[in-house]
């Protein structure tokens, strides 16, 4: 894959553990998470209704939508609890020199 697909999100200390930040790039929006074992990224909007997951609650490996409590696995994107039934898209993340990068296709 072309090197330019890796987009810089920010520094690793910009996200607290078990938390997330919103990251907008072009016309797309993402969530970037810091879990106990590393950084992860998903689409920003819940697959149930258009509401941003940045205000959701991160618990272990899961993100819960703040509007209707749909739950997704952050690492796989799997929709775990209704009303969400469509999986959330996930993106590769790497850390280089304390900077977080996500690969957007």
């Amino acid at each position: 894959m072309a090197e330019e697909n890796w987009i810089e999100v920010g520094s690793t200390d910009s996200i607290e553990e078990e938390d997330l930040i919103r990251f907008d790039h072009g016309d797309k929006t993402f969530c970037v998470y810091r879990l106990t074992d590393g950084f992860y990224a998903t689409d920003g909007y819940c697959t149930h209704e258009v509401v941003h997951l940045e205000d959701g609650l991160v618990m272990d490996d899961e993100i819960e939508c703040p509007m209707h409590q749909g739950v997704f696995n952050i690492k796989s994107g799997e929709a775990l609890s209704p009303p969400a039934c469509e999986d959330l898209k996930t993106y590769p993340v790497k850390v280089d020199n304390d900077k977080i990068y996500i690969k957007i296709d």
Binding site: V51, D55, G56, L57, E64, P66, M67
Partner: peptide, 11 residues
């Protein structure tokens, strides 16, 4: 506004 109270209500 949509999404703003959910996290704290969940907690």
């Amino acid at each position: 506004v949509a999404g703003k109270v959910g996290r704290d209500i969940r907690i």
